[in-house]
Design a protein around this nucleic acid. Structure first.
Lengths: 124, 124
DNA sequence: CTGTATCCGCGTGGATACTG
DNA sequence: CAGTATCCACGCGGATACAG
């Protein structure tokens, strides 16, 4: 039942590797932007509308970090008004499956977690 | 190749579900503690030694949150000196596979990401 | 051994206004 | 259209000391 033989992937190197990836995707918007871009290339304004609640500033910062890490490509078209298209790179696309695994876990277990949380609160 | 039909799991409800789970596991220590507990029940001091770098305060806070969410059980043995055993609940264990998926992705792609990052820096 | 209590620096992210 | 610039509030997490 236990898979402790494999958790060295997480605990290895004192957790630096897993922490590095968590630092990248665990901010408030990254995963949502990546998931939104999975439908294909989008321009800044489209992203701003589809990722509900994100500010211009946060969208810019998130996209810059993703571009810097090679998960998203940014192509500027020499037009007036300017047009900028964002798209997932192969590396970016490869993040989708593990992200879906996590989302699946969340959808399946969050009700139970919420219940446990409420029970814990009222108990104290 | 694209899996955009499925990313609604992530984008659904404006990202609240995925954000809820990320808020839980994306802090600095949670995933490491969970992975460490996958080898079986451990007491406070053992965890403190095995999760290298964590402070008493952070270990306590992390364990309290995990207990509250029903991912970890806490059993106090009436002895002197006190003995407290922490263990994963079934829900807690179920987090391991998706976490491993993420760790696998990290191990596979982090070298490329680091390279992209350095290239981005020197380019600017 | 298993925690609590207190203080504090730092970074994230929100609001708002401005620009090429 | 696609950003930048500035200011600021908040909370995470580290260090340290104390306690049942």
């Amino acid at each position: 039942m236990s898979e402790y033989e494999h958790t060295c992937m997480i605990r290895g190197d004192g957790g630096r590797t897993i922490r590095a990836i968590l630092d990248r995707i665990c901010n408030k918007w990254t995963l949502l932007v990546v998931a939104t871009l999975d439908q294909g290339s989008l321009r800044f304004t489209d992203l701003h509308q589809q990722v509900s609640g994100i500010s211009q500033r946060m969208l810019t910062l998130t996209l810059r970090n993703l571009e810097r890490d090679g998960l998203v490509s940014r192509t500027v078209h020499a037009e007036v008004p300017p047009r900028v298209e964002y798209a997932l790179t192969p590396t970016g696309k490869s993040l989708i499956p593990p992200a879906l695994a996590l989302a699946g876990w969340a959808i399946e277990h969050i009700p139970h977690i919420e219940a446990s949380r409420e029970a814990y609160e009222t108990r104290n």
